[in-house]
């Protein structure tokens, strides 16, 4: 299925994330020196300030923190999808990720609900990591 979403803002630091997502891998930045995992990516490690940074494919396991239902489209491209949910998840490896439920919101959605990543190819160029109940 193909549909419109706001496009990524073109931050070159994010390119590996999007490349991995196209190949159905969820990844976060990981410091080669101290092992700190962080997302969104940063030009230096926020923990030790090292510039030696890699991308690490993570388990895709997460827990739900919260979600909201948008009734207003801040981008025209989302107007036809109202209302839509955005969820905030905590990856097993630590970083938080803003995302969507793939398919309907889990009926028992609440803070702490176990989730797993699923990939949604919204166009030839863009695949979004999303989440379903584990």
């Amino acid at each position: 299925m193909s549909y419109g979403t706001p496009v990524p803002d073109g931050d070159p630091l994010m390119e590996p994330f999007w490349q991995n997502a196209r190949e159905h891998r969820l990844s976060v930045q990981c410091c080669r020196d101290c092992g700190d995992r962080h997302f969104p990516p940063s030009p230096v490690c926020p923990s030790c300030l090292s510039e030696e940074q890699d991308w690490e494919v993570v388990s895709g396991k997460a827990t739900l923190i919260s979600w909201v239902t948008f009734h207003r489209a801040y981008w025209d491209v989302l107007q036809s999808q109202l209302p839509y949910d955005v969820c905030l998840v905590a990856l097993e490896e630590g970083p938080l990720l803003m995302s969507n439920f793939l398919g309907p919101r889990p009926e028992n959605a609440r803070e702490g609900l176990p989730l797993r990543v699923a990939f949604d190819a919204v166009s030839d160029h863009l695949t979004l990591p999303k989440f379903v109940a584990a």
Partner: peptide, 30 residues
Amino acid sequence: GGDDSASVWDPWGFTSPGAAHAMMFRMHMQ
């Protein structure tokens, strides 16, 4: 929100300070 304040979360449709506070209030409710 939207293009007034672009962020890394745009592709998932997340934007605006109001939505961030809605996230927190949902947590408070739960």
